[in-house]
Design a protein around this nucleic acid. Structure first.
Lengths: 212, 212
DNA sequence: CCTACCGATCGGTAGG
DNA sequence: CCTACCGATCGGTAGG
């Protein structure tokens, strides 16, 4: 997991960040002690302070390393598609997949919102917004497939599609009825596409794929 | 806020729950101490233990009192409308409004997910699901306006619509560009309605209202 | 990166 | 013997 040929100091730093990440996800920020982090990283508590000046600095390093920027944005940027439909289907699937792989991103977000009152969300948004806008713009300009929806609203609605799926997944994952889960993402994308495309512009391959 | 004619014991209990609720929202569960709760409730720390056996028991009481069941479900249940469109527009607006009023619900949810690993979400879902299903079923049965989407998926997508709006609102509230906020909820509802209604079944009053 | 500690505060409980 | 609450303090742990 952590490269072996790194200088000892950097290795330890990554060890601390990784240990802190796991503990924060499991217990939250205030629910995690410096002693727990030290033990998980295999060093003494005071040793941590050779790499970080405070507990909060560790959290910032964790946030930076497990940023949506690093996880979800590449999934969006790598989306392919000749039509708006194909692009959005591909992008949505990629993004949901990347979150399911590293399930921590949402928890980090929740910790940020609850235990830091969303202090660090602003700068995060400023970094991401222009790049996401650029990607979406690239795939929607000069197209006549979309209903007249302002691009920022469309972008927000697309991010919203992502949250609509992952939040309902997170909330009702455990005992959600089976009929609420089967092909849910395909249905969600389908509803969204029907919502933003001009009537009749939606191809058939997506839904057929989903119900077959 | 707290009725004055209650027995002293019940008053104190409500005082503790209210104080804990405010503190949990601001600092999270582990970020709030029994001393803070006691001070905010105007009693000694040990006085709390005449009403609750532990800090966690207080959290459960807070969760019960500020349950979405008590806040958002009535907003959904009271939704009116002769058509599916009118009903969904009304329901979505009511739900978002009720959350904006008592902004705490989402934070309680995040605390639950992060600091209790979603332990108490299951029973919450079991209580709410049948009632929500009943409401949505009542307004969709025998209608020919909807595209063929399984009812549980439709319901999940509707809950998702709610989360898509409030999560993007929460995340980017601070420095979201103005054009991302103007009439956003109306656009969101509009996209959803286009998504679930059969082509051509969407009335015009909603969007005209939104853009005027 | 360690052992050895600090001032203070943690959740919880004693007797009255 | 009850409910409600007090001042004081318990054994341990927090970040530093």
């Amino acid at each position: 997991m952590i490269p072996e040929n790194l200088p000892k100091g950097e290795r330890t730093q990554l060890e601390i960040i990784g240990a802190a990440h796991r503990l924060f996800l499991a217990n939250g920020y205030h629910g995690t002690s410096m002693r727990q982090i030290a033990e998980a990283a295999g060093i003494a508590v005071s040793g941590i302070y050779n790499h970080f000046n405070s507990k909060e600095e560790i959290f910032l390093a964790v946030l930076k390393q497990y940023h949506p920027y690093v996880r979800i944005l590449p999934a969006l940027a790598s989306a392919q598609g000749d039509t708006v439909e194909a692009f959005l289907r591909n992008a949505a699937r990629n993004m949901v997949e990347s979150v399911e792989e590293s399930s921590g991103f949402l928890n980090l977000l929740f910790i940020e919102l609850v235990e830091f009152n969303g202090q660090h969300i602003s700068s995060l948004f400023e970094e991401i917004y222009p790049q996401v806008l650029e990607v979406v713009h690239r795939f929607t300009q000069g197209r006549d497939e979309l209903r007249p929806i302002p691009l920022p609203i469309l972008l927000r609605a697309f991010i919203g599609l992502f949250f609509s799926y992952v939040m309902t997944e997170l909330l009702i994952r455990r005992q959600m009825p089976a009929d609420m889960q089967e092909n849910a993402l395909d249905y969600f994308i389908d509803i969204f596409l029907h919502g933003v495309l001009i009537d009749g512009r939606l191809g058939q391959e997506g839904r057929q794929e989903a119900v077959s």
